Simulated scan of single mutants.
Amino acid sequence: MKIIVISDTHIPKRAKKLPEQLIVNLKQADLIIHAGDWQILEVYQELAGYGEVQGVIGNVDGQDIQERFPEKLIIEVHPFKIGVVHGHGKKLTTERRSLDAFKGEQVDCIVFGHSHIPVIKKTDDILLFNPGSVTDKRRQPCYSYGILTIKEDTIKAEHIFFDDKS
C-alpha cells in the first residue's frame, strides 16, 4: 500500500495550486493523508479526485474545514495504526505535542505537520513522520512531502524533496 502524506499546503496563501511533483505520486496513491493547514476546502476536493483522503484540521483552517475534519484521528491500515494530528499548541515542541495527543492509545506511527520541518524518527517504538510542506519550505532547503509504504508487517517512511513548487 502506498500512502501519500502531506501537510501545511497553505493554499492559496503560499501557492495557487498543488505542485506537479506531488500530483505524479497522487495518481499512484492508495490513500492520501493531510495533516492540517489545508487553508481552503478546495484542496481536499482536488485531492479527493486522486483517491481516498483522510486528514485533520490545522491551526489556520477555517470553519468549513473544521466541520469536515477532526483534530486527530487514527487510521487502521492492517496491521498498523497511524495517528494523525497537526501538532500545534503553546507548550512543548511540535513532536512532543504530537506524541502527547496519542498518549494512552496504541499507534505505530504518528503523522504530524505544523513545523514544516521534515522528520522521520522512532520514539518509544512509534514512527514519527512529518512530511514538511509542498508549498512553504520556510528555512528548509527544499519543499517536501512523504510516502508511507506498507508491506505485510513493515511500514517504511520516506521524504520526496524538490526545489520548484510549481
Rank of each mutant, 00 (worst) to 15 (best):
M1K: 05
K2N: 04
I3W: 01
I4G: 00
I4R: 02
V5C: 13
V5L: 08
V5N: 09
S7Q: 06
S7G: 07
D8N: 13
D8G: 07
T9K: 05
T9C: 05
H10K: 04
H10S: 10
I11L: 02
I11K: 04
K13R: 14
R14S: 15
L18D: 06
P19R: 00
P19H: 08
Q21G: 06
I23T: 10
V24S: 06
N25R: 15
L26K: 09
L26P: 12
Q28N: 11
L31P: 04
L31N: 07
I32H: 04
I33E: 01
I33K: 02
A35E: 09
A35I: 08
A35N: 08
G36T: 02
G36W: 07
G36H: 04
D37P: 01
W38D: 01
L41G: 02
E42C: 04
E42D: 14
V43P: 06
Y44H: 14
E46T: 13
A48S: 15
A48P: 02
Y50A: 05
Y50N: 06
V56S: 11
V56Q: 11
N59Q: 11
D61S: 00
G62V: 11
Q63G: 00
D64M: 09
E67Q: 15
R68P: 01
P70W: 11
P70R: 02
E71I: 11
L73D: 09
I75H: 06
E76H: 12
H78K: 07
F80M: 05
K81E: 10
K81H: 13
K81L: 05
I82W: 08
V84P: 02
V84A: 08
V84F: 09
G89C: 00
K90E: 14
K91I: 13
L92A: 14
R96M: 15
R97T: 13
S98M: 13
L99S: 11
D100I: 08
A101P: 09
A101M: 13
F102G: 15
F102Y: 10
E105F: 14
V107W: 12
D108E: 13
I110L: 07
V111Y: 08
F112L: 10
F112S: 01
S115A: 13
S115I: 08
I117R: 14
I117Y: 08
P118S: 07
V119H: 06
T123I: 15
T123D: 10
T123C: 05
D124V: 00
D125C: 03
I126C: 06
I126E: 07
F129C: 02
G132S: 03
V134S: 05
T135A: 10
T135C: 05
D136N: 03
R138M: 13
R139S: 15
P141H: 08
C142F: 15
S144H: 03
S144N: 01
Y145H: 02
G146Y: 05
L148A: 10
L148E: 11
T149D: 11
T149W: 00
I150H: 03
I150F: 00
K151R: 12
K151V: 01
D153W: 10
I155G: 04
I155A: 02
I155V: 07
K156I: 15
A157K: 11
A157G: 12
E158D: 08
H159D: 05
F161I: 10
F162L: 12
K165C: 00
